[in-house]
Amino acid sequence: MAAAVSHSHEHADPVAHAWHRVRINRLGLWLFLISDGALFAIFAASRFYIAGTAIDPHLNQLLGLAITSLLLLSSFSAYRAETAFAHGNTAHGRTMLLATILMGLLFVGGVAYEWSIAEFAASEVYGTAFFSMTGMHAFHVVTGLLFLAVIWARSGGGRYSQGPAVWPVTAVVIYWHFVDVVWVFFYPTLYLLK
């Protein structure tokens, strides 16, 4: 009974109803991220199962550090974008979204370059782990870039300005951070072990 009364109040108040929808959407997004995270965990576990902790000595360590720093920086600009939108600062938010997209593109370019200069084949043990893990991660980066581009293109005119209206920006930014979290584990797994 109490729940029904509360529910009807939320419908009577459009803002409360909008926040209610955001809470449901947020839970759905996190459930998706947990299931997607399990996929990445399986990839990481497979890497240790087939190749132990060994890495290829020919890996370009500086390139690995550079693309890792880029992705980290892009997470910060995505955070700045979300914060700006949440405070009605749409112009700054759009600029930060664009910066995030640019750094994401550079990250993908770095991974592509790493693939092109790799001195190991995908058929080798370490190569199987490296190409499958970076490939699956890069696919997520590309989808994140598409989401960011859509949000940037639709964010003119104050569409995502303050309150529950910011949720589309928040959702895409959370997804982008998730991609960063995955790389937080993949970077040492692929580049830094011995």
Partner: peptide, 10 residues
């Protein structure tokens, strides 16, 4: 790092 990103950024 995962904790910081999850709590503060996500």
């Amino acid at each position: 790092k995962c904790w910081a990103i999850t709590v503060y950024f996500m």
